[in-house]
Amino acid sequence: MKRFVIFLIITFVMTLAVDYALARDKIRVVTTLPDLAALAKVVGGDKVEVEALVKGTQDPHNIEVLPSYMVKLRNADLFVIIGMDLEMWAYPLRDGSRNAKLVMVDCSLNIERLEVPTYKVDPSYGDIHIYGNPHYWLDPENGKVIMASILDGLAKVSPQDYDYFVQNMQAYSSRLDEKIKEWQEKMAPYRGSMVIFYHNSWPYFARRFGLNVVNFVEPKPGVEPSPSHTAALIRQVKEKGIKVIGKEPFFDERVPKLISRETGAKVIVLPPSVGGVEGVNDYIGLFDYNINALSEALKG
């Protein structure tokens, strides 16, 4: 019995020691979305170890509060979220992690927000986000604002590496500037083109690249498409000659395909996050993919 107790104590102490040693090796960053993880890797460079809780193929609105996520946050130094109530599940995870030292960064704080309701919001409007549309990472200019928020968080955790983080951020911002110019040139011929998206995830993207979003497959945010709404969409697509219906990978394709069959409009899968489709592995790659897919579809 005595030996067993000594064994348990040694195991416990060794586990703590291993945890401590690992924690000191690199800054552990956990993000909600893979897009934030991609940008945290850029800013943190080789000083950070980054993990995203949500996969690019998952709908970030509906994520279960899994204890395995709490374990990841328990060992983390920095927790980066989109905010604006996109991840309602992030707060119970933070509480469940019991990590008193965890620094939490809400990247939405310095974002110029779109679609902030100016009326009394209630569930009859669907799943409206009361702080505005939270899909702001889909404007690459906002990628720079997100990096600045991540920089603030990393500087709190590791102030001695501040200059290194700033250097990484500036280098990537310059690259982003070049790419934004390239993407805008590529989309210039299609400025003002009418498109339909499944969910209202794209207002920031549409503003940056001049798309005219005329409707959604969902009649209201978070509400499944009804037959009457689908019929109205079919009429609208025919009347206005809309060529493209954009759909996130995690939404059902049946209704978009039905509209496509009836109208000839093309359904394209547009990942709103890194990892949403194969080959999209970083933040710039996400826009490369979506810009290519949209410009090809609008050209046709």
């Binding site: 416990f12 586990t15 703590l16 945890d19 204890p67 395995s68 709490m70 374990v71 328990r74 019991r98």
Partner: peptide, 12 residues
């Protein structure tokens, strides 16, 4: 309630 140091397994 407290968490046990069981690595990637969440044990409470």
């Amino acid at each position: 309630s407290f968490l046990l140091p069981t690595g990637s397994v969440y044990s409470q």
